[in-house]
Amino acid sequence: MKEIILPGDLVSDKPIRNSYTYIEDGKTYSMVLGTIEREPLSIVPLESVWSPRIEDTVVGIVTSARNSVYEVDLRFHGRSIIIGGKFERFSFNVGDVVEATVKDIEEKRTIILSYPRLLSGGTLISVKTAKIPRIIGRDNTMIKQIADKSKSSIIVGKNGLIWLKGGDIALATKAILTVQEEAHVSGLTERIKKLMENGER
């Protein structure tokens, strides 16, 4: 597998800007536990805290609804809101599960959501946000494979919440958790394919 780096490890003797490094005295150091490829520099965190980005798809739960402003619990340390109004077609109740898109982030702690959609029924699982890209897969291949074989509807939120409904939820959950555990190990797609076909590894 790829080389693992840890916080404080020297990445380069030269200053290089990267989301997971910092520069001190002209040198570049890692600030995460992750895997690294040096030429060209690419660092992928093995564990991470979700930092919202505009256009991220998220899944959350409505925790308050007042004057057409909905607070949504995204497992984020700040506030997340959907702003409704008489020109909007949606309306939600406390406890509703919603899918939405990050429209704006104010001062790293308030997320404004848009295009909300109600996800009724089903269940939620929470996963490590560092593993979301692998759970989705290149061009959605991984999650599509899991959804097709389990016959479950699945919505993956970048914030680490995944909504599942119908089909074999237990199998789909097992597959998602396997991706989470083994995301950094090569041959993952094949293993998940086998798991989905045989029901076990």
Binding site: P7, G8, Y20, S48, T129, A130
Partner: peptide
């Protein structure tokens, strides 16, 4: 802390 994915200057 490192295992929680929290960004740090050093271990």
């Amino acid at each position: 802390l490192a295992g929680a994915g929290i960004h740090m200057k050093d271990l």
